[in-house]
Nucleic acid binder design. Structure first.
Ligand code: ATP
Length: 750
DNA sequence: TGCCAGCCGTTTTTT
DNA sequence: ACGGCTGGCA
């Protein structure tokens, strides 16, 4: 089958009529508003492929915007698979990363053509400095200011709106202004600036806009319910001319108001609800079939979300019948919740892989007790999100050094490292340095440093140490490959020695390992052709998670927040801490709107599950180091009675848990779907070899989950998981006595 | 400038 | 409970 036939086959068999309506056309503005698991993301992916295959649209005329980098990565992999990994792909990324790219390639239009991207801690550092300088520490806290800045930049699209938002709080206004000045002086942009500066580019530079619109003809956006005002304005700029008429070939936006969970970050559902105001020609399409979850799970999700008032009711059905797929467990404590989780997974492991499971929680702190339990029971796990690789002290130090090479005006980076490793340079020195810098704003930190040394403004020791610090940068330029910058810097600053001196042995070792990981990441990055220092720093500043150097092939459970689970799906989902004050969070209890957002979180959590759902809550847990009694979440009561299968496991030990979970997991292993030849094949399989769960993944693949294969040594087995890392395909196969991961060529299909 | 003791806020969620 | 920040002291 060639690519086109393959796609046509997919189009006919794996997309329903509504999806086809959105995927097929070359032109038009389309808005897909549909519930969870209805195949919205599939629409986006297929539409891109359709544009390329059927309408011969060049990849670089298409851009797709996703909510997270991870979603972008998945989408790219999917498209690449459709296209047999041939040829260039369209741009797929987050709004932020797309904007960063635009800004970098149009840097001549910016106030500061080279800039560093600062994270929240850098932002806080600026704000603290301002508060200190102005002696305002008694009147405002950095937190307040940061939240005002963020609101101003997320909920308003221009200065006028911003001023209105801040109201008559002059102090706040002033600090925000100063914040902007500090940032510009350091040649830095924050996350929000990426969007705002790009917006400005469109508004102020007609030529730029024209070039953009000549090139980009098709825009697709996923998760539109969680975009903010700026993103909406940006989308309009990208797709409309000055008289606000749509002038690209197509725009396709998908979303689900019931899954809007980022209003705290400025996201507004009005973007999606009022979409047709700004795009009058938009054709609204809805999909009402859910392909992900079995009926009971979808049903309770629908019932729970019905309790929200600010929504358009919708019909969502699934034709995947099943019984007894939802269980609620009442645990004694947070500790025991961890125990229950560990027992559950221990038992689940004998019928399916850990990869098929996800554990969700409302906030990160809950992961701790769960994690400890998994460690006690030796269950491999991975915490997604949370304290990130690039947030680590030592990594930030290294990045700051690299930032200084790229952007020698980067005061934030300078502040971070001028005394790391310790060089006897402290606050006094910093004040002097910045005072000098303010007088000579066009000088780099090296020039300022040399100036201070030359004019003898420092004691001998300080001057010598400063000279040593500056010498570390000698010969390092932004044009070099990142490793050619990083390695000399580590060496010259004697950073490893510093780690040994300043930390306990284990901690120092761990930090050193992290830096080694960073080096690996850099080297991995350099395997690509456009690997400059600048592109490395850009990539890294938008990426939270560690770069995956070797494809992760092991079997582990994923732990993450409800937020981080958006857009994902798993066979079995375990929702933990379903308690008043946790979900809904204590901060939302007195505000009906926040409460509804919490309910949407619950909805998102439930609808991640394909086959099984476990909800857990505890009678007490430790909060702020104190025991607090907890009551079951109101959202549990919103689950229809007949599906509310509750058990009190407060007194259960290993034995009871085993009986309970064994019984549950062995009851009707898979839901039977009536569609497609593959499903039928699965059902004829020998019972022993039957995979625990069915799956409706990609039809296109030769290797399918659930297929029977034979291996010379291990005998017959069932494919549990297919992973592609071109040009190889790796199969996780359950053989009679073991699970193995093999390259596909080692086995033969039966 | 560097170190330590005690204090304070933390537990929403992320690009 | 605990980590990070502040302010006083060496
Ligand atoms: N027409 C279809 N036939 C069969 N399966 C489908 C179809 N469309 C989508 N699916 C499958 O349904 C599941 C959900 O699809 P997808 O992730 O695209 O939904 P979504 O609407 O983006 O969900 P959510 O909003 O919850 O993130 C996926 O496993 C996908 O492969």
């Amino acid at each position: 089958m060639n690519i086109r036939e393959k796609f046509d086959h997919f189009f006919q068999n794996q997309l329903n009529r509504e999806q086809q309506l959105v995927v097929a056309p070359h032109e038009g503005v389309m808005l897909v508003c549909a519930g969870a698991g209805s195949g919205k993301t599939r629409v986006i992916t297929s539409r891109m492929v359709s544009l390329m295959i059927h309408h011969e649209v060049r990849p670089h005329s298409i851009i797709a915007l996703t909510f997270t980098n991870k979603a972008a990565k998945e989408m790219k992999e999917r498209i690449a698979r459709f296209l047999n990994n041939e040829g260039p792909l369209p741009y797929v990324g987050t709004f932020h990363s797309y904007c960063l790219r635009v800004l970098k390639s149009n840097s001549h239009l910016l106030k500061t053509p080279t800039f560093s991207l600062i994270d929240e801690s850098d932002q806080e550092k600026i704000v603290r400095t301002i508060i200190q300088q102005k002696g305002l520490s008694k009147r405002v806290t950095p937190k307040q200011v940061l939240s005002a800045i963020s609101r101003g930049k997320n909920e308003a699209i221009n200065q006028a709106e911003r001023e209105e938002l801040w109201g008559q709080d002059l102090l706040l206004k002033e600090i925000c202004l100063l914040y902007e000045q500090h940032k510009t002086a350091a040649h830095c942009l924050d996350f929000d600036d990426l969007l705002l500066e790009t917006l400005t580019l469109f508004q102020k530079h007609p030529l730029f806009k024209k070039i953009f619109q000549d090139q980009v003809k098709h825009v697709l956006v996923d998760e539109y319910q969680d975009t903010n005002k700026v993103q909406h304005a940006l989308l309009k700029e990208m797709t409309q001319d000055d008289s606000r008429s749509f002038i690209l070939d197509s725009l396709c936006v998908v979303g689900d108001e019931d899954q809007s969970i980022y209003s705290w970050r400025g996201a507004t559902v009005s973007n999606i609800i009022n979409f047709s105001k700004d795009f009058p020609q938009a054709v609204a399409i809805t999909i009402s079939q859910n392909y992900r979850s079995v009926q009971p799970i979808l049903h309770i999700a629908n019932e729970v979300i019905k309790n929200n008032t600010y929504r358009n009711p919708k019909q969502l059905f699934s034709d995947r019948e099943a019984q007894d797929r939802i269980r609620i467990l009442m645990c004694a404590s947070g500790y025991q919740e961890g125990e229950a989780l560990a027992h559950l997974l221990k038992n689940a492991r004998s019928v399916s892989s850990l990869n098929a499971h996800a554990v969700l929680y409302r906030s990160h702190f809950q992961s701790r007790s769960l994690e400890e339990a998994l460690i006690r029971y030796g269950i491999p796990y991975k915490i997604m999100g949370g304290i990130q690789f690039y947030d680590r002290l030592e990594i930030k130090d290294m990045l700051a050094y690299m930032r200084l090479v790229m952007n020698p005006f980067d005061r934030l980076a300078f502040s971070r490292v001028f005394n790391t490793p310790t060089r006897g340079l402290g606050d006094k020195f910093e004040d002097l340095f910045y005072a000098t810098w303010d007088f000579m704003p066009f000088s780099s930190f090296i020039e300022i440093g040399n100036h201070l040394i030359a004019t003898k403004q420092l004691t001998k020791i300080k001057a010598d140490n400063l000279a040593l610090f500056l010498a570390a940068f000698e010969g390092l330029t932004p044009e070099l490959k990142p490793s050619k910058v990083l390695l000399p810097l580590i060496e010259r600053t004697r950073y490893y020695t510093h780690l040994k001196d300043s930390f306990e042995k284990d901690e120092a070792e761990a930090k050193k390992d992290n830096i080694k990981e960073l080096i690996n990441g850099v080297l991995f990055f350099e395997e690509r052709n456009d690997s400059t220092l600048e592109s490395f720093l850009s990539e890294v500043s938008l990426l939270q998670e560690q770069m995956n150097v070797n494809e992760d092939t092991s079997d582990y459970v994923k732990l993450m927040t409800f937020h981080a689970a958006k857009g994902l799906e798993f066979d079995t989902v375990i929702l933990t801490g379903i308690e008043e004050g946790v979900l809904p969070s204590s901060r939302s209890l007195f505000n009906p709107e926040s409460l509804e957002e919490e309910r949407r979180l619950m909805y998102v959590g439930i609808t991640r599950a394909k086959e099984r759902l476990i909800l857990m809550h505890a009678k007490y847990r430790y909060t702020y180091g104190q025991v607090t009694d907890q009551t079951a979440s109101r959202f549990l009561d919103e689950i229809p009675e007949q599906y509310r299968v509750k058990d009190d496991c407060s007194f259960w030990k290993e034995h009871e848990f085993r009986i309970y979970f064994n019984e549950w997991f062995s009851s009707q292993k898979s839901s039977v779907k009536q569609t497609g030849p593959l499903e039928q094949k699965k059902n004829t399989l020998n019972e022993d070899f039957r995979p625990a769960f069915t799956d409706n993944e990609d039809y296109l693949e030769l290797w399918q989950r659930g297929q029977r294969v034979i291996h010379k040594l291990f005998g017959q087995g069932i494919i549990e998981k297919v992973e592609e890392k071109s040009p190889h395909i790796y199969l996780t196969i359950r053989f009679k006595n073991q699970i193995k991961k093999l390259e596909a060529s080692f086995v033969t299909l039966l």
